[in-house]
Design a binder for these strands. Structure first.
Lengths: 248, 248
DNA sequence: CAGTGGTCTAGACCACCTT
DNA sequence: AGGTGGTCTAGACCACTGA
């Protein structure tokens, strides 16, 4: 048993930073179970030595894992892989991506698509000048051929030039944004509940007054620019939010 | 104009790490508006020089701010304070703390309090052996003398020895846990909605069938031990969740 | 081109935990 | 006492940005 260093290879000529190569390798070992929950990693000095890295670089790699909540470090003790149940992802996800992952065959109907000056409250949510142009969409999302969510989205017109209703019907908003090179980084969400209006009930195939989950979200890119504001309602009997929080 | 370094003092004899002293100082300057949104920080080399620190230490301080989403860094450009609206807190909060902060005068009525072997699904949620002892509580939370939430909580008996119903009535669960030296770090939450049962409607002063927000949460401490499982319902017309997500 | 942050090294001392 | 992670230093080279 010479530890786990032998399972990690690093490429000094890769453009990928060394610490990142090591971090993703370790992540894979943990996810795949070759570093089981509760097991102890080699010390950072040993790992650095075996991989031919300096200790600060090795520390940077492990710090990434700590940040993701994959491992726990204790001075004088060592570095331990945390219990698997704690390893839920903390992600900025889209409904479409979620459904795809869960293999619930999403389908999208684009009910409205237009470019027009932003109404007051939308301009505020996106931190735009009043009257700036925004793309406005209204979509109905199905999962397994049952209606699941009614989604209203607003984007500054400059964010996704050339966006079409057809694209949105096929790809999901966040997917489209990624192809436009937009990287979302922070999202502020408000989650609540209320009774369905008559129109919502009809579109979602629910009875009038049925409980709906509501979510408003503003998403920002890496530079802090507001990219998207969404106001959505979900059938409460078919959807719920999972959120993981990490204290800082 | 000699930059912001003159506004920061560091104490080399303090047990608080230098990078942390600098990070919190910068945080204060940003929160207080003395470093306004959009303004550029001095370069890390300059700051390190003026504060008498090495560059890696200065980097570590700024990295903290990046991690919190307070500033954005671009190679070749510099470090900028992000737009204030993006600076929502990402926190592991308790309802009681939230209400206190919002000055909505919370009050708690303890409806049940006991220690007993855990039911199957609670044992699973807390990763305990079936039949292990858990503290079980049921509480009704008021804000401004109106009922707001009905909360069921379950804690491994060892977590908070000597916990009493009286304490819970006065202090809020998370507050009590802090006095027991418990530091929560990760929480997995599921947020949904459904109609109120007759009993829930009566306790919460709602009509039967009114929409309720529901939340189940398992919270873990820094070592990955499950500390608390809660299953709560909230009046949808008086409460909503705010969540901030940061992509990694 | 000059200036910025991103990465990396090879050491050092310390606080904390286990034995 | 011995080993662990936590902090800190003083350099170095590189990639990217902007004028």
């Amino acid at each position: 048993m010479d530890g786990i260093a032998s399972l990690i290879t690093i490429d000094r000529f890769s453009p990928v930073p060394l610490y990142f190569q090591v971090a993703t390798s370790l992540e894979d070992l943990i996810e795949s179970g070759r570093l089981p929950a509760g097991s102890r990693l080699d010390t950072e000095v040993m790992l650095a030595d075996r991989l031919g890295l300096s200790r600060p670089t090795m520390r940077q790699a492990i710090a990434h894992l700590v940040d993701k909540g994959l491992v726990v470090r204790k001075r004088g003790v060592g570095t331990q892989v945390v219990h698997s149940a704690v390893r839920r992802k903390v992600e900025l996800t889209s409904l479409n991506d979620d459904l795809r992952r869960a293999q619930r065959s999403p389908r999208t109907e684009v009910l409205a698509f237009s470019v027009a000056p932003a109404p007051e409250h939308i301009a505020v949510a996106l931190h735009l000048e009043p009257g700036a142009d925004v793309i406005t969409t209204q979509r109905l999302r199905y999962a397994e051929d049952e209606p699941l969510a009614l989604m209203h989205n607003y984007l500054p017109a400059g964010v996704a030039p050339g966006l079409t209703a057809e694209q949105l019907g096929e790809q999901g908003l966040y997917q489209v944004l990624r192809t436009h090179g937009v990287q979302l980084r922070i999202a502020d969400q408000t989650i609540g509940a209320r009774r369905a209006t008559a129109a919502e009930a009809r579109l979602l195939g629910e009875s009038r007054g049925a409980p709906l989950l509501t979510m408003q979200r503003t998403a920002y890119d890496h530079a802090g620019r507001a990219i998207e504001y969404g106001s959505h309602v979900y059938r409460a009997d078919r959807y719920s939010f999972e959120v993981s929080l990490v204290a800082r």
